[in-house]
């Protein structure tokens, strides 16, 4: 039996009928064509599928779409709503060279956003701890950590 659900994704409301075994990741990618969010390990280890669910970073591959009913979801596509000016986190990732193949990037950026909302001035070890659930096989993480530090500075100066 399909369940009818309402998702608010990046500010847009979608009414959908979904099978109960389908994940939020599948619905975002296959039904809504929001393919920025990746599918990696399927077991909550790699973080490539990370999205914000009611303001918290979660693995969309381990979230049933039916359990996301009525919730607000933010994906990488929603980071820069205007489509013209990038989010400070995205700018920092580009400027610091924190993106190589790019597969981990959407998850990394959402996890970074989760961190910076909770802790606007994280130390290096706090950044590494917050990104422990996001694997990158290209960069060696140094540039990503630098990018998050830089994003924190950018976001602070934007506020002041």
């Amino acid at each position: 039996m399909k369940h009818s659900i309402t998702l608010n994704v990046n500010g847009d409301t979608y009414n959908l009928a979904v099978d109960p075994w389908r994940t939020l990741n599948e619905v975002l990618r296959e039904d809504l064509n929001l393919t920025g969010t990746k599918f990696g390990c399927g077991s909550g280890d790699c973080g490539a599928c990370t999205v914000m669910l009611d303001g918290r970073a979660v693995s969309s591959c381990l979230t049933l779409a039916v359990e996301a009913d009525g919730k607000e979801i933010l994906t990488v596509e929603g980071l820069a709503p205007s489509g013209e000016k990038l989010h400070p986190i995205q700018e920092a990732f580009i400027e610091k060279g924190a993106i190589q193949c790019g597969f981990c990037t959407p998850g990394m950026e959402i996890a970074a956003l989760d961190l910076l909302r909770r802790n606007p001035g994280p130390k290096e070890d706090q950044i590494r701890e917050a990104l422990a659930g996001n694997l990158c096989r290209c960069t060696g993480y140094a540039k990503i950590v630098e990018a998050v530090q830089d994003a924190a500075d950018k976001m602070k100066s934007n506020q002041s």
Binding site: G44, G47, T50, L53, R56, A57, V58, S59, L62, T63, A111, D114, L115, A130, A132, G133
Partner: peptide
């Protein structure tokens, strides 16, 4: 326990 994402779920 686990990572940020898992602790949020």
């Amino acid at each position: 326990t686990a990572n940020v994402q898992v602790r949020n779920m």
